[in-house]
Design a binder for these strands. Structure first.
Lengths: 162, 162
DNA sequence: ACTGTTTATGTTATTACATAACAGATACCG
DNA sequence: CGGTATCTGTTATGTAATAACATAAACAGT
């Protein structure tokens, strides 16, 4: 996880394990509430993503999945697809990576939702922000375009790295 | 180039070759004006991207590069990076593809600029629209984040496909 | 409980996307 | 013309993602 600034920022675990457990339980409840199954590989995948405070590559999850040796890619990619559908994680397109959703920290159930991200090119950190998009909505309807999903990612330098 | 709707929309050449030539000459001029070289592989890459009215995959360019046989990936990826720096094409992150810039149709020289895209999941077409992003700019400065580059992509259905 | 159905996982293999590293060629500048 | 910077060619490899099919677990109806 080496970045443009030349630093390494590996394994910055800001969430303690208690906090992670709480979010895993919350995720469990959210799945039950929707009649979906929170299975072992899905839970493990979510755990690994929650344990980083920055977007995580699919193959990092694959490598760390088992204590001894990697998981098979489809196992993890299927889990990632599920978690994304449930609104528990987001895919960061410009990084080919995944980050835990920060949009329902208060425990509210949320529909899969669009979100914007501030992504630091130096330390790799990610901040999720909520924005409305009146201009592009307007441009879309002016073109007769029906928007299903919006990707909005700002790349740059976070406060700490500037 | 098969899409969600089940149709194939291969090789929809909406720009006639005269129009493409005009844009290639324009690109040449733009490079000269900035002291950059518009070399053969760069021109060929741009030509192939201009010949589609939808985002083109890097390996499609690679495959079509020579009349008989493919180019080597680095040749094309280098050309793509150059053309993007020059603001002649844009990378579409959510598609891993590249599309010609539609933002300077009047011949004005343009700095590399952010742009938003309406991307049809059915026919694969792309429309570039100009939007300002007051909300995310505001959120970024509130967080002390310095934005360098913004990706804004709306996926959905275009007018024709609805 | 049995059985059919649905949903999820395991496994092998392959496909798609992208870059590192170095050698050779071409443009540009004094 | 010779040195330097830039670009291209080539080989090899690294990284990201999915197809296809086999197996297993959950669940609903009888």
């Amino acid at each position: 996880m080496s970045h443009a600034c030349g630093h390494d920022h590996d394994h910055v675990h800001t969430l303690d394990s208690g906090r992670i457990d709480a979010r895993l339980s919350e995720a469990r409840r959210l799945c039950e509430a929707q009649g979906e199954r929170m299975t072992a590989p899905r839970l493990r995948t979510l755990e690994l993503i929650l344990s980083e405070n920055a977007p995580v590559k699919a193959y990092d999850v694959i490598d760390r999945f088992h204590p001894d040796g990697a998981a098979k890619p489809p196992t993890v990619y299927r889990a990632l697809a599920f978690l994304e559908q449930m609104g528990l994680i987001h895919r960061i397109e410009s990084l080919n990576a995944f980050v835990a959703c920060q949009g329902h920290a208060d425990g509210k159930a949320v529909q899969p939702h669009a979100a914007a991200f501030l992504l630091c090119d130096c330390c790799g950190s990610s901040e999720e922000v909520a924005v409305s998009l009146p201009e592009i909505d307007q441009q879309a309807s002016a073109s007769g375009f029906e928007t299903r999903r919006v990707t909005l990612e700002a790349r740059g330098l976070c406060k700490a790295c500037r």
